[in-house]
Structure formats: structure tokens, C-alpha cells
């Protein structure tokens, strides 16, 4: 069997304790939440931390409150989010995203904080040490001067942002709180992400995500996930859409986010152009065509990249049609399945 290397283990009792341990641990310390991303990465030697600071017993990091603003503590399990009737009612995009992450068993232990910080993914990188050694490793090491096999002539890492909840929460306008020994700060979620596959987060290594807050504006939202199978698979494409319709269907605010087509969740700039318009067929198609141009899938996930790109456009328009109120059961097969699918869970 595959085993992770040796590491020290600190069980934090409070967030402050975790922050202190993390700061003292230096650059090779990592937070452990559900461990469903970190531990497999350690077994594959993608990461070789010498200290794990476990958040699993930090009670203050768990829980959801919905009164006006929604606040979710970072250690809340994805299954708890999926089970929350309030989130399902108020923030369908988040519900749908969380419910389709990984598998029921993984969602029992995986957390929202971990999902927002989940490592980027690439077919050339999410492999065992032996496999990566066979290809002479890649730009992400562990040896220096590696090549990015996805775009060998360039000097950057094109690994794909693969969180399902991040696009949904960005579309919903979420902010998050980061805490370290130095103090707390509060940023819009989209600012957590740098467009760099090898170093995808802008936060400092000693900062802990403690909570995620979603403003209470009335919006309609949805999340469309493309994956080959009905469960388990990471997104090969994610489209999160949130709109605030005003009187007569005139859009007052719109945030559309693409996932899994770049190294960061991509807030589509043209979202702004929807404001003041109504979602007619023309408006939707024009928007989808423009927005799909931002999707530049590379050959480092499942499915052929050109095919993924063509689906991006149909997902963009499909998601908006759903929000307009079209009946998804009349959609073509893939759109219908996608719009109607929620993750399966043990009841």
C-alpha cells in the first residue's frame, strides 16, 4: 500500500492554538482538516510536510448560521452543508456544488475550508512519486528546472483550479476571514486565488481560513458541474451563476464564475454587461459566447480539451436559462442531467 512519509502531529484545541502551532511550525507545517486532499497528496509525495496541525478537534470551527447573512465555519463538513435546509433554500449554488463534491463518504469528513484551499490539479502532477519520476517530474518539483508538460515552452504551471465550492461561493459574493497569530483579515473570496497553478492561494502559509460569509442579497443561483461519472470525479468544468432580478426581470446584479478551466476560479468580467438587461434568448447566447472565450481548458483534466470548451458555452447558456425559469426537464440530455443532478447521499 502507499504510505505517507513521517511527520509530527499537533492536535489543536482552539483556533488560536492552531495559529500558534502553524506559525511556529514554519514553512513545512500544514493544516489538516478532513485530510481528503492533503493525505493523498502526501502519499504521492506531492507534499512532504513535517508537521500537521489538526483542526479536527477545534469545535469553534464548525457550524452554520443563517440569519440574514450566512456564516459557515471553515471546519464544517461538506455533508453538513448539504444537509442544511437553509443553505439549500437560500444558496442553491452552494448546495449543488457541495452535494456534488467527491463522494458521500468523502463529504462526511471533508470540510468547506479544505475545499476552498484544495490544491490545483493536473494529469501530470496528481500522480505517484514513481510516475512523476518516469516523466522527469515537472515544473512543480521536487527537482529544479522541471518542465510544464502541459505547455512545455512556457515557464508557468497550468494546473487547474478544481474546487467545486469556490466558483459557487464567488458567484454568491462570499467573503472569508483569515486568521493568524498576527491577527485577522477579511477578503472577498475571489482574492484568495492567484492565477498560478503551482502557488494557487494568495494567503500566507500561517493564515487559517476560519469562516465564510455570504451576504443576504436575494439572488437566484445555480451550479453546473461537468464530470464523466455520477460521483467521485473532480469537475472538468464548473459554471456557477448568481443573478439578482429586479422588477420585470431586469437584472440588478450578476456574477458568473467558471471553474476548472484555469488555475483559478474565473469571475467572468462580462457578467457586468448583464446588469440592466433581461435574460432573453439573444442576451443569453451573446453572453455565453463571450464568456466561453475565457474558458481555456488545457489537456490536463479528463475529457478532450476542445470538447470541454464547447461544453462551456452550452453550460453558460444553460445555467442562465435555468435561472430565467426555463424548465430543465425540457433541456437537451447533458444540460438536463446537469441541471437536475444533485449529489446522492445516504439518507
Amino acid at each position: 500500500m502507499m504510505r505517507a512519509g513521517r511527520f509530527r502531529y499537533h492536535v489543536a484545541s482552539t483556533v488560536a492554538d492552531a495559529a500558534a502551532a502553524l506559525a511556529d511550525g514554519g514553512p513545512h507545517a500544514r493544516l489538516l482538516a478532513g485530510g481528503t486532499d492533503l493525505i493523498p497528496n502526501m502519499k504521492r509525495r506531492q507534499d512532504t510536510p513535517d508537521l500537521l496541525v489538526s483542526l479536527r478537534h477545534v469545535g469553534e470551527l464548525r457550524g452554520i448560521s443563517v440569519n440574514g447573512e450566512t456564516a459557515i465555519h471553515a471546519g464544517t463538513s461538506l455533508d453538513d452543508i448539504v444537509k442544511s435546509a437553509a443553505i439549500r433554500a437560500v444558496h442553491p449554488a452552494l448546495h449543488r456544488a457541495a452535494s456534488q463534491i467527491a463522494s458521500p463518504l468523502i463529504r462526511n469528513t471533508a470540510t468547506l475550508g479544505g475545499n476552498l484551499c484544495v490544491d490545483t490539479r493536473c494529469n501530470y502532477y496528481n500522480q505517484t512519486f514513481e510516475w512523476r519520476k518516469s516523466i522527469g517530474f515537472c515544473l512543480r518539483g521536487p527537482v529544479p528546472d522541471g518542465i510544464c508538460w502541459v505547455a512545455p515552452s512556457g515557464r508557468r504551471c497550468w494546473a487547474t483550479a478544481s474546487s467545486d465550492s469556490a466558483p459557487a461561493l464567488i458567484a454568491l459574493g462570499a467573503r472569508l476571514t483569515l486568521l493568524s497569530r498576527e491577527g485577522e483579515r477579511d477578503i472577498p473570496l475571489e482574492e484568495l486565488y492567484a492565477d498560478d497553478g503551482a502557488c494557487p492561494l494568495t494567503k500566507r502559509a500561517d493564515e487559517i481560513v476560519t469562516s465564510i460569509r455570504i451576504p443576504s442579497r436575494v439572488v437566484r443561483s445555480t451550479y453546473w458541474k461537468l464530470r464523466r461519472r455520477g460521483s467521485i470525479d473532480f469537475p472538468a468544468l464548473g459554471v456557477a451563476a448568481a443573478i439578482r432580478p429586479g422588477p420585470h426581470g431586469v437584472i440588478e446584479d450578476a456574477r458568473i464564475v467558471l471553474g476548472a478551466v484555469a488555475s483559478h476560479p474565473l469571475l467572468v468580467p462580462e457578467s457586468q454587461l448583464l446588469i440592466g438587461r433581461t435574460l432573453t434568448d439573444n442576451v443569453i447566447e451573446e453572453f455565453a459566447e463571450g464568456a466561453a472565450r475565457h474558458a481555456r481548458p488545457l489537456d490536463n483534466t479528463d475529457f478532450a480539451m476542445t470538447w470541454r470548451k464547447s461544453v462551456a458555452r452550452s453550460f453558460l447558456s444553460g445555467a442562465l436559462r435555468e435561472l430565467r425559469g426555463d424548465d430543465p426537464s425540457t433541456f437537451p440530455l447533458l444540460a438536463r442531467e446537469t441541471a437536475l443532478r444533485n449529489g446522492w447521499r445516504f439518507e
Binding site: N123, S134, R229, G230, S231, F234
Partner: peptide, 18 residues
């Protein structure tokens, strides 16, 4: 190099119950 494209149960796409 000549390596297996999908040497894991996550990436080798065997159908799920769903």
C-alpha cells in the same frame, strides 16, 4: 517516457453505482 495515463481508481473511469 511512456506512462499509464490514468493509474488510479479516480482517473481510470470505471462507472459508479449512479
Amino acid at each position: 517516457a511512456l506512462v499509464h495515463k490514468t493509474p488510479s481508481m479516480l482517473d481510470y473511469k470505471s462507472p459508479t453505482a449512479l
